[in-house]
Write a protein that binds this DNA or RNA. Structure first.
Lengths: 227, 227
DNA sequence: CGGAAACTTGATCGAATTCAAATAAGGTGG
DNA sequence: CCACCTTATTTGAATTCGATCAAGTTTCCG
């Protein structure tokens, strides 16, 4: 049965691919490190994150997932994941059977292309993260994050004007940006004071997009194909 | 005409796929930012790197490429690359026509699987980099780099005992690890003094692998499918 | 209402950067 | 083969960005 909307990104034809839909609360594991994902998943609603746990208890968030995102292209291949995927909010996602989807991919070039595109987008985001973590200051990284989420959410029609749902805790921002919560708090306070952004009730408002871009480092690179 | 060896990673059948081979010197661009790659390339000999240039002149190296590596899975898709690919040493690589390779992929599941696997390996390496840059100290990152290169080169039969060709300049290590040359020099000096590694004439010897792993952080995560 | 997360704020510390020079290693034309 | 020039590497001193330590305060839920 075809479910309308963003879940259908992979089901380009007449929607005959079998999908299972699931809903879960926040802080739940969608996929677990060391286990192969039992299917290929698309986030339909809510935010999730790919998380690596270090032996000393610290964490690194590899990426945030929002509606329309494929939960790691690597799940197309039946391999152990090296990270957990966990929900940050209430999440609804759908699961495709791996073999069925693979067959669909091989039979239908547009589906193949679509999946390839999602994979490219995912890799581009990882590359963005590497550049941010490797060469940008804390403020630049956080400004980048805000802008990146704004653009991704806008592309999916999930931003109004310059504001959008922003359920991230500062701890999660810290884990994604390679910082401490304390420092994230300081940077966000500074952004508020400088009237760059404002966060009220888990909703982020971009007050001065131009200046925010400047702070983010306004680099020309990494502006390639996104989804 | 089939060329033996590592170039053939994608050409699993009887080697009828057309390949063009090219040789270039060090510090040459194999692919250029903003331009779609004109084909799908495999490194046959030498080292290369994917490099992002920031507007202020600083650089971030996204990954190092060694023989057997695909030059970015994203080149399967005709999109603008957001980074340069450049040779670090003399490099020989081969180029497949994108349409021909795509057709081969769609027709031959083993080839499809092979390409998928290379893509997964690439993504895993990017994720490794994110964790290193986000959560590890300078020494841990450099130790990781040495171990990772050792393992990758070993998998391709390019390491003897615990030593291998290591053509990287400290500047390049710095650009990959998000550090300055000055600091890379200090860390490597310390490693030498502690008899962890030694670098002589662009060849790296791992003196104390166990201790090197300890320094690298000996984490259990991120030990997934590599190629 | 009460307890636990989440967020702030201040003081101090430290890893890595920056600035500055000196030394070593390569590569080139004569 | 050597003098010369450029690119790498090393080392030291001073600085800084973000971490760590330590309380508070606020917000969120059950």
């Amino acid at each position: 049965m075809r479910v309308a909307g963003i879940c259908g990104v992979l089901d380009l034809e007449d929607g005959h691919l079998r999908q299972t839909h699931r809903s879960i609360g926040p802080r739940r594991k969608i996929d677990r490190v060391g286990e192969p994902s039992e299917g290929v998943k698309i986030i339909c609603e809510g935010w999730a994150a790919c998380v690596v746990h270090l032996p000393d208890g610290r964490r690194q968030i590899l990426s945030f997932l929002i509606p329309g995102d494929l939960v790691s292209t690597t799940t197309l291949f039946r391999a152990r994941q090296h990270f957990d995927v966990q929900s940050l909010t209430n999440v609804r996602y759908c699961v495709y059977s791996r073999p069925e989807l693979l067959q669909e991919i091989l039979e239908k070039p547009p589906v193949f292309e679509r999946v390839l595109k999602l994979g490219v987008a995912e890799k581009n985001r990882a590359d963005d993260a590497i550049v941010s973590l490797g060469r940008r200051s804390a403020s630049a990284r956080i400004a980048q994050l805000v802008i990146a989420m704004f653009e991704r959410l806008t592309a999916r029609g999930l931003a109004l004007e310059q504001s959008f749902e922003f359920p991230l805790r500062q701890q999660q921002i810290a884990d994604a940006m390679g910082l401490t919560t304390v420092h994230v708090s300081r940077v966000i306070s500074a952004f508020r004071k400088e009237r760059l952004i404002d966060i009220v009730e888990r909703r982020l408002h971009i007050v001065d997009l131009k200046e925010l871009r400047r702070v983010a480092g306004e680099r020309s690179s990494l502006r390639g194909a996104r989804t």
